[in-house]
Every structure is written in C-alpha cells, then in structure tokens.
C-alpha cells in the first residue's frame, strides 16, 4: 500500500503522505522507535523548561514585594522579613573577579604554550593532567581550601600582600584567612582547566598556513604566535573566559567553605564575605516562612540567568572563531 510501482515493476519506498507524514514516512517498528527516542530527547527540553518555570513561579513573592530593589538593597534581615541581595551579589562578583585576574593570564599562557610552543607529547601529557583537574569534586577543593589555603593566607600570603600592596584599600584591615581573597584563589584553580583546555583547542583550530606564512616572512615562533595565531583565536579565547566566569559565579561548595559567610560590602579582600550560591547552600534548609524561602529561590534564579547569558555568549564566540578559522584558508 505504502509503496508505488514504477513502469518496470520495481517497488520503491513511497514518499511520506497522510496523517503521519510529519514523522518522515517511517512505519512499524521504526515508527515506534522514532517516537520513543523522540520522547526521551524531549525530556531534556521538558526538564529545562520545567526548571525555569518552577523557579520563576516559586520566587513571585519577593519579586512582587521588592522588585528590582532586591538586587541593590544591602540589608538581608530574615527576622524582619527584609531581603536585599546586594552583599551576596557583591561577594559573587568580587570572588569571581579575583579568580579571573589570576586564572586568565595563567590559563591563556598555559594554553599558548600547550598549543603552539610545546612538543606534541609533552603538550598531550600536560593537557591530560590539566583536564583531570576539572574532574576534582568541588567539595575536595573545599577541604583543601579550609585546611591548607586558609591558614596559608592568614599566616604567609596575607601578610606578604599587606607589606607589598597594603597602601591600596584592597589589602587593608585584619586578615582572618577566610574571605574574598581565599575564595577567589580557590576559584581561580577550579576554573583554570576550562580556560586552558578550550583556549588550547581554539588555538589548535587556527590553520597551520597562517603560522607558516608568518614564519616564512621571518618572524620568530613567538611573533607568529602572538601577532598572528592569538589574534585569530581571540574571540574563542574570550569565549573560554566567559565559560570559566560562568563556572566561577555559580560555584557553591568550595566558596561556601572558605568565604566566611558574613554578608558584608567592604573593599578589603581580606574581609569575610558571602556569595549568592553560598547563602542558598547555608540558609535554604533553615529558611522559615515563604518570603524567606522564595527570596533564596529568586537568588537561584538570578544565578541561573547570569550563567545562562554568559554561557550563550561563550558558545557564540567559540563557534564564531571556529568558523573564522575555517574561512581563513
């Protein structure tokens, strides 16, 4: 039925028609398999939409009550039912900024070495180890942070910074070990592998002809790398940085364990602080009353929104570079 006969009598599969046409003309087992796997694939979409809708609905109370002031109000007082998220937003931004200041030069430098300058075998081995770093659970970083980094910052690194840079407002005041600086340090290690491994891949995708051209014109290896390859890969490297930033902003456990959990807005990096993810982790089970709980959910929504935008940008930049690299030849 579903096949048409040609003049010479050969049966050809028919073009899809009728009610099931949108399925592409498959039938029987194929049709069932297609439907079942389609449902499975759609489950990803369903969960994602469900998550966004759920978070949106369950944070309506503070949205109506505080509106946009929620993000710029600096008082977080559960007892009086007043919720302003600024100290957490500030802590999240400051720790991420510290992390990026450390991990961008280190990560891009390492990626340049691994992609351009190192021999292949050495590059592969080092990349293997760096990518393993991304697999370390964040609570493990937290443990090392609490027991090793915090005392180190308190007794050695902090005093050193104070001696050298103590004239700036960033490095003044008492140093408890826990705080913005320590959280930023731990974060910088955690996001490093993302910058290194993606930047390396972006650099490797730059066509070899460009390097050969630069070298043929008499440039040194470094000049060809820095003046030709890196500019070509620039947008992709920026993408890897955005991706790392998204990770840093959303990171919970390691930050919660070393940031000090004190809602404060001060310039000193030595000061204990708080971050969005940390306040959710600490107060969610203790939140009494709908407004309190929903304010925490709204913080989660804010975190989700920010990482969403950064992630989309990162994807766009990385794929733009890949296309540019292909088009360059």
């Amino acid at each position: 039925m579903a096949s048409s006969n040609t003049a010479v009598g050969v049966r050809l599969p028919s073009a899809p028609r009728g009610r099931w046409r949108w399925l592409g003309g498959t039938k029987g087992v194929d049709l069932i398999a297609r439907l079942v796997t389609l449902l499975a694939a759609l489950s990803v979409l369903v969960v994602t939409v469900w998550l966004v809708v759920d978070l949106w609905q369950k944070s309506s109370l503070p949205r109506h009550q505080f509106g946009f002031r929620f993000l710029v109000d600096r008082v977080w007082d559960p007892v009086f039912g007043h919720f302003g998220a600024l100290p957490f937003v500030y802590g999240t931004l400051v720790t991420s900024a510290v992390a990026m200041v450390i991990s961008i030069p280190l990560g891009v430098g390492a990626a340049i070495f691994l992609a351009e300058l190192a021999p292949r075998g050495l590059s592969d081995t080092l990349t293997f180890f760096i990518e393993l770093l991304a697999a370390v659970p964040s609570v493990v970083f937290g443990v090392v942070g609490v027991f090793v980094v915090v005392p180190w910052v308190r007794t050695s690194f902090g005093p050193l910074l104070k001696d050298v840079l103590g004239f700036t407002p960033l490095f003044q005041g008492p140093d408890y070990g826990v705080g913005f600086l320590t959280a930023g340090l731990v974060l910088s290690i955690m996001v490093l592998p993302f910058i290194v491994s993606i930047s390396r891949e972006v650099l490797l995708s730059v066509p070899v002809e460009l390097r050969e051209g630069a070298l043929a014109l008499g440039s040194t290896k470094w000049e060809s790398t820095w003046k030709v390859v890196v500019p070509t890969a620039r947008t992709g490297i920026l993408g890897s940085i955005f991706l790392a930033l998204a990770r840093a902003l959303g990171e919970t456990m390691a930050v919660t364990m070393v940031i000090g959990n004190t809602p404060k807005i001060v310039a000193s990096l030595f000061s204990p602080g708080y971050s969005i993810a940390a306040v959710i982790a600490n107060e969610f089970t203790e939140a009494t009353g709908d407004l309190y709980l929903q304010s925490l959910v709204e913080l989660g929504l804010v975190l989700f929104g920010v990482t969403l935008v950064l992630h989309a940008l990162a994807r766009l930049l990385v794929s733009a570079t890949a296309q540019k690299a292909r088009g360059a030849v």
Partner: peptide
Amino acid sequence: GVPFVVRYAADLLVSVPSIVIGIFAYAV
C-alpha cells in the same frame, strides 16, 4: 528542528549551577 532545540537545552542544563538544580529538586 528538534535536535537543535534539544541540544541547546542540554547545553543549558549542563551549565546550570548545581545549587540551582538542588532548588529545583527541592521544589519538585
């Protein structure tokens, strides 16, 4: 069409901070 949207959703879901997944599971 469908794979494009699903791939995008999967990408998104992977990037969601894990604490937010916790809130979602709590609510659900």
